[in-house]
C-alpha cells in the first residue's frame, strides 16, 4: 500500500478527494468494525499511516481539528484508551472536555442519555464514548447530532483497538490477508476479541479463538472464526497471537469461569516454553492491561516477538485518523 503524505494544511487533505470519483469517507460515527467494509477499514489504516509521522515531529501538532470540541465520556474506567484519545485530539488541535462517571451525576441517577444531551448542549462536535453496557454508543448515536466514536462498549466492540491491532500487524508482518491469528482467553466478555474477529476476517485473515469452553461461547463460530480449547495445538499454526486479559469484573452467574488462576495460566498462559514451539516470527499482542504471569509471562510480554508497546504507539495515529475522518464526514 502506498504511503500517503499528510499535509498539515487542512485544505489539501489528501484522503478526502471525492470530486474525481475517489473514495470518500461518509460516516460521521464510528460505532464498530461490523458496520465497515474492507475498503473503509483500509482507508482508516492508510489515513493513520499519514498521521503517524506527526508524532515524530518536534512540534507534534497539526491544525486539522482546530476549533473543534471533542468530548471524552468515560462511563467506565480506562487509562490508556482515554489518554490515547485525549492526546490524539490535542495533536489535532481540538479542545477536549473529559467526563468520567465516578463522582459524576451518573451516580446521582441521571441516565446516560441525559448526561450526553447536557454535554452536547455545551457544543461538542465529537463524543468519544466508553461505556460498560454493550450498545450504549449505538443508542446515543440515534439521539444526538454530534459524531460518536465508540471507545469500547461492554462486551461488544472496541473498534479503535481492533484497528490499531490490525495496523500493527500490517506494519510488522507487511500484510493481513492470508495470515492466521489466534485470539486467546476471555472471548466471551471481550470487545477486543469481537472487533479483531470482525476486522481481521474482513481483511482476509483467518481467525481462531482459543480458551476454555466457559469463556468461549460456541455461537462465536457464527462470526466466521473457528474455536479451539487447545492452545498448544493452535500455537504452531499461527502468525499472530493476541492474548486477552481475563475480565473478572464482567463475570456473572453461578461460579467462576475457571477453577483457578494457576490452572488457567498452566493451560492458556503464553510462556517461553510455548513460544519456542511457535513460528519464529510470531507476533505476540496484548490489548492491555497485562496480568503478568496469568495470560502472559514477563519474558514473553517484554520479548522480541511482542509488539505490545508498539500497539499503544500506533493507537495514537489510528485515533487521530478516526477523529479526523468522522469530523470531515460530519461537516459534509
Amino acid at each position: 500500500m502506498a504511503k500517503r503524505e499528510f499535509s498539515s494544511a487542512r485544505s489539501s487533505a489528501p484522503v478526502e478527494a471525492g470530486e474525481d470519483g475517489q473514495f470518500v469517507w461518509t460516516r460521521k460515527d464510528l460505532l464498530g468494525l461490523d458496520e465497515l467494509s474492507e475498503r473503509q477499514i483500509v482507508h482508516i489504516l492508510d489515513t493513520a499511516e499519514s498521521f503517524k509521522e506527526v508524532s515524530t515531529r518536534s512540534i507534534k501538532k497539526v491544525p486539522a481539528l482546530r476549533g473543534k470540541v471533542v468530548g471524552l465520556l468515560f462511563f467506565e474506567d480506562s487509562t490508556r484508551t482515554r489518554m490515547s484519545f485525549e492526546l490524539a485530539a490535542s495533536r489535532m488541535s481540538a479542545d477536549t472536555i473529559l467526563f468520567t462517571s465516578k463522582g459524576s451525576s451518573v451516580a446521582k441517577g441521571e441516565t446516560t442519555l441525559d448526561t450526553v444531551r447536557n454535554i452536547e448542549a455545551m457544543g461538542v462536535d465529537i463524543f468519544v464514548i466508553r461505556h460498560g453496557q454493550s450498545g450504549a454508543p449505538h443508542v446515543i448515536a440515534r439521539k444526538v447530532k454530534s459524531s460518536i466514536v465508540n471507545a469500547g462498549d461492554g462486551s461488544h466492540e472496541h473498534p479503535t483497538q481492533g484497528l490499531l491491532d490490525i495496523f500493527t500487524i500490517r506494519q510488522r508482518l507487511g500484510r493481513v490477508k492470508g495470515l492466521k491469528a489466534a485470539i486467546v482467553g476471555d472471548i466471551a466478555h471481550s470487545r477486543v476479541a469481537r472487533s479483531n474477529i470482525i476486522g481481521l476476517q474482513k481483511l482476509g485473515a483467518e481467525v481462531v479463538v482459543v480458551g476454555p469452553p466457559t469463556l468461549v461461547p460456541p455461537a462465536i463460530k457464527e462470526m466466521g472464526c473457528s474455536i479451539s480449547h487447545d492452545l498448544d495445538e493452535i500455537l504452531p499454526q499461527v502468525d499472530v497471537v493476541n492474548m486477552l486479559r481475563i475480565q473478572f469484573e464482567r463475570f456473572t452467574g453461578a461460579g467462576a469461569a475457571f477453577p483457578s488462576m494457576r490452572e488457567y495460566a498452566n493451560m492458556y498462559g503464553l510462556n517461553a516454553a510455548r513460544l519456542k514451539r511457535c513460528k519464529k516470527n510470531i507476533l505476540v499482542m496484548h490489548p492491555g492491561p497485562i496480568n503478568r504471569g496469568l495470560e502472559i509471562t514477563t519474558e514473553v510480554a517484554d520479548g522480541p516477538n511482542s509488539c505490545i508497546l508498539q500497539q499503544v504507539t500506533n493507537g495514537l495515529a489510528v485515533r487521530m485518523a478516526v477523529l479526523y475522518l468522522v469530523s470531515q464526514a460530519a461537516e459534509k
Binding site: D34, S134, D153, G154, S155, E157, R191, R194, A219, G253
Partner: peptide
C-alpha cells in the same frame, strides 16, 4: 434463576452483540 442474568436470548446474536444470554 441460576441461568438467568442475561438480557436477551443466548445464541449467535447475543454473542455478536456482546449481551448476556
Amino acid at each position: 434463576a441460576d441461568l438467568a442474568g442475561g438480557s436477551m436470548n443466548a445464541g449467535p446474536v447475543a454473542v455478536r452483540l456482546g449481551l448476556g444470554g
